[in-house]
């Protein structure tokens, strides 16, 4: 376990110290949310209806933005070779990297989303639900991002391919995330089921994505 957390800690320190990690995702999130109302206009009711979907799409794209930094730097400087040699199983390496990615990008964005949602006149009733749904959903986003990064490890400029590969996998998270958020002011009965499905997606990714990511890295390295 110490080994696991030492890798999580190192990846977190690296995302915080280097440009292009957490800072970039946060900056992008903020930029889009500031520009949206300027582009769409000051119709508060329209913005309010738009807000949950816009926040979710922005979250998705911000997470995508930092995806190619999950494995690429370690691949380029030879660290990934040493990680493949062990002693920690590569599955746990992939999990540690996903957790670090989530703690560094997904989680802070999810926590900030209600506050920044004010820019889109987000209904105050939705503050709690959207944060909860985003915390859960962004875990799945980071795990799937890690899978995409693992499949494209060793490709130069893999970022575009990662987006194409994992966007389809992000669609269910988007659908049920927005459904859970919107249900609070729309059809309250939908909140429970949507959250359950969102949790199921996250749990399934938690189990499957690291195994698939490890297999992809191993296939490339050996």
């Amino acid at each position: 376990m110490t080994v696991f957390w030492s890798l999580v800690r190192r990846d977190l320190v690296l995302t915080l110290r280097q440009g292009g990690g957490a800072g970039m995702a946060l900056g992008f999130f903020l930029t889009v949310l500031v520009l949206l109302p300027l582009g769409i206009g000051p119709d508060l009711n329209f913005l309010q209806r738009l807000a949950p979907g816009a926040l979710w799409i922005t979250l998705l794209l911000s997470v995508l933005l930092s995806t190619d930094r999950i494995f690429a730097p370690d691949y380029e400087d030879g660290s990934l070779e040493l990680m493949t040699m062990g002693p920690m199983p590569l599955e746990l390496v992939a999990l540690a990297k996903s957790v670090a990615h989530w703690l560094g990008t997904g989680l802070p964005l999810a926590i900030l989303a209600p506050g920044l949602g004010v820019l889109l006149n987000l209904d105050t009733l939705l503050f709690g639900p959207i944060m909860l749904a985003m915390v859960l959903g962004s875990l799945a986003l980071s795990l799937l991002a890690c899978l995409g990064a693992a499949v494209t490890v060793g490709l130069r400029r893999g970022g575009m391919i990662i987006s194409l590969l994992i966007l389809p996998l992000y669609v269910p998270v988007l659908i049920f995330g927005v459904a859970a958020t919107n249900s609070v002011t729309g059809v309250p009965e939908l909140f429970g089921p949507s959250m359950l499905i969102l949790t199921a997606i996250s749990l399934a990714s938690l189990v499957l994505a690291p195994i698939a990511a490890a297999a992809a890295v191993r296939a490339h390295m050996t």
Binding site: R10, V13, L14, R17, Q18, P73, E76, D77, G78, S79, E81, L82
Partner: peptide, 8 residues
């Protein structure tokens, strides 16, 4: 390669 992180 040296497997070093330049930011650390």
């Amino acid at each position: 390669q040296n497997a070093l992180k330049l930011a650390l």
